[in-house]
Design a protein around this nucleic acid. Structure first.
Lengths: 212, 212
DNA sequence: AAAATTCCCCATCATTTGATGGAAATCCGA
DNA sequence: TCGGATTTCCATCAAATGATGGGGAATTTT
């Protein structure tokens, strides 16, 4: 319990936490420049100055949101890693995909904000230049794509990126893609998992003899 | 030669075309709300009012940009479709991936803007609600994933989305991902192709007996 | 060359947006 | 209940931003 963020999340009823939660959703839909502090304040039904009282300037709130979703993602990955440890590669993929897809469909702002950070620049560049956690190597090792936890080869990293991004795409693009494939939400999630497995299971099965 | 957009592109030296080209790049980097008309004007080194003289309000210029990149993408897809027609599935994928990856790395704004449209909302929602071309079915048919050009099953659409989006991801995310995998640009493009093939070739080989 | 048209820039507006100071309201322990 | 600390809101500001009118330069037409 040191950072302001942690303090806010401790009591989800606190105004500070409510603002953070609303900010997650609004930033997640409209991006940094597409979101105004007034939009967030309206979502919580407070005056704009209350927002500034709790979080300071817009960039600081955004940074807190990014830290928040990164932390959530990190925790989830650790949780999944525990579940799949020791299992055969096919099973590892199967469980990991199911778990991550469900988690991200429940928290789509995570996928939205992650992708925005990958693909978009911000006018005031310096603001959001804090360090990005390096999940990729950990995932690669945990999936058994690399002998060493550190020093993961580039091709293994690229493969992990492929799968992670594919999940984010289906989650963030739901509004766009679901009408294209004409499925209800439940079917869409189901088919997201199936499609992800369609691509990854065959690929890795064909590659690894060390499929444990 | 009817629309303003076509007229502009006919003479790439015209002010109107230069503005369009600059707008592509700036919108592609910063998104709709992240881009100011002054940024675009500065990129062309003209006064902001000249920009308004040629293209009217910001939303209209943005719409022209989107039409432009969609048209480019459509043409490229038609071109690729001709090249792969009649070849075996593996070859089709191989050529299509190579061609599309090269094309999009040369025109990264296309991937950027496409992804932004998938994942982000705009404050003035109505503006950008013009129709999105339905490439997906055409690609699915052209790749041999569907018997009929029309009436492409959902799972085939999902698979096409997966591949197209994966390409866009690697292109748009280059600034972010390339340091992660520690490759120079050429190697990164090469490995993008390899990774895409790694996932799709195995998957489709295992699936289709009708691999022609 | 004169006239008409097109094109571009300067100055300026109105609105939006990030941000703040200070007054009112609320909470909380003594 | 009193008094201080915390929290919230109202009014407002300054800068950024989308947008326009009018004048003048450049180009084309006559």
């Amino acid at each position: 319990m040191t950072t302001a963020l942690e303090k806010a999340k401790k009591n989800p009823e606190s105004m500070k936490a409510k603002i953070l939660f609303a900010a997650r959703k609004v930033f997640g839909e409209y991006g940094f420049h597409g979101t105004t502090t007034r939009m967030i304040a309206k979502a919580v039904d407070i005056d704009i100055s209350t927002l500034y009282y709790h979080w300071g300037e817009k960039g600081d709130l955004y940074e807190a949101v990014i830290r928040d979703i990164n932390e959530g993602l990190r925790c989830k990955l650790v949780e999944v890693e525990k579940k799949i440890r020791g299992k055969p590669l096919g099973t590892r993929l199967d469980i990991a995909i199911d778990e991550m897809v469900d988690y991200l469909f429940e928290n789509p702002e995570i996928s939205n904000l992650t992708l925005m950070r990958y693909f978009m620049k911000t006018r005031h560049g310096k603001i959001m230049d804090f360090q990005v956690p390096e999940y990729i190597s950990d995932i690669a090792y945990s999936m058994g794509l690399s002998e060493h936890r550190r020093n993961v080869p580039p091709d293994a990293r690229m493969k992990v990126l492929n799968i992670m991004n594919a999940i984010h795409n289906y989650v963030s693009g739901e509004n766009f893609f679901r009408p294209m494939v004409d499925l209800d939400r439940k079917e869409y999630i189901r088919m997201t998992k199936d499609t992800l497995k369609f691509f990854s299971l065959a690929a890795f099965a064909g590659e690894r003899d060390a499929a444990v």
